[in-house]
């Protein structure tokens, strides 16, 4: 693929910059194929919010420090602010809008509501997408900093706290987030029959 405009090799200069030609990008967003013409500078986050009007994904810091923009890219959690849409032509993105709806909640959304896993809600879409990715990573045996044995990855509240450390919550709903995700993990793994909280998994909250 040849660059459509060609200041190739031009040293960065001050003053007005030429606007680069747009490039065609096709993404499968929440199961729907979407084709766009994008300036290569457009982040995946801005693509979702400004071009596809999927404003559930939030812009917190826009620098990879807060996790509010977390989405699932081909099933893996990533920061949509730190990647360009043009890099992901042909790939699949799942946002909070694709996880569930008010009438058909994702189990994690349902658990966040019942456990009061938020106050202002701004970080919540990122927390939810990150939690989906985290549970998958634990199931696949991806180790973390607190994993005792690299060959034996087990779910625990400590694992969740470490693995979700890239998702900041200024309201500090962390204990309730841990409770909600722990409950969903337990129910997915057959340990919970009735959807109530699993005290053992979550009660020590923070303050370790």
């Amino acid at each position: 693929m040849t660059p459509p405009t060609a200041p190739q090799g031009a040293a960065p200069s001050e003053g007005p910059q030429p606007v680069p030609a747009t490039l065609p990008v096709t993404l499968t967003v929440n199961g729907q194929e979407r084709t766009l013409e994008l300036d290569p500078r457009v982040s995946l986050l801005d693509t979702l919010r400004e071009h596809l009007h999927l404003t559930g994904t939030k812009k917190g810091c826009d620098h990879g420090q807060c996790g509010a923009c977390t989405v699932l890219l081909d099933g893996q959690r990533v920061l949509s602010c730190l990647t360009l849409a043009v890099m992901h032509d042909g790939q699949a993105v799942t946002t909070i809008e694709g996880l569930g709806t008010p009438d058909d909640l994702h189990p994690l959304q349902d658990a966040f509501i019942r456990h009061d896993g938020y106050q202002c809600g701004y970080c919540t879409p990122g927390q939810l997408c990150s939690s989906v990715g985290t549970l998958d990573e634990i199931a696949r045996g991806v180790p973390s900093h607190v994993t005792a044995d690299l060959d034996d990855v087990r779910f625990s509240a400590d694992e969740l706290r470490e693995r979700l450390s890239g998702n900041l919550c200024r309201c500090a709903a962390y204990p309730n987030i841990i409770a909600a995700v722990s409950e969903v993990h337990a129910s997915q793994n057959g340990a919970s029959q009735n959807g109530t909280a699993q005290p053992g998994a979550a009660q020590n909250g923070v303050g370790q």
Binding site: G64, G67, T70, Q76, R77, V78, L79, L82, T83, S130, G133, T134, E137, P143, S144, H145, T147, L150, D151, R163, L164, S165, G166, N167
Partner: peptide, 23 residues
């Protein structure tokens, strides 16, 4: 890497966040 170069696994998971390590 986990079996023969565990120091590398340990160092990687000590850095950044899960989202960043995926990318």
């Amino acid at each position: 890497v986990r079996a023969d170069y565990a120091v590398l696994s340990r160092a990687i998971v000590a850095g950044a966040s899960g989202q960043i390590r995926n990318k």
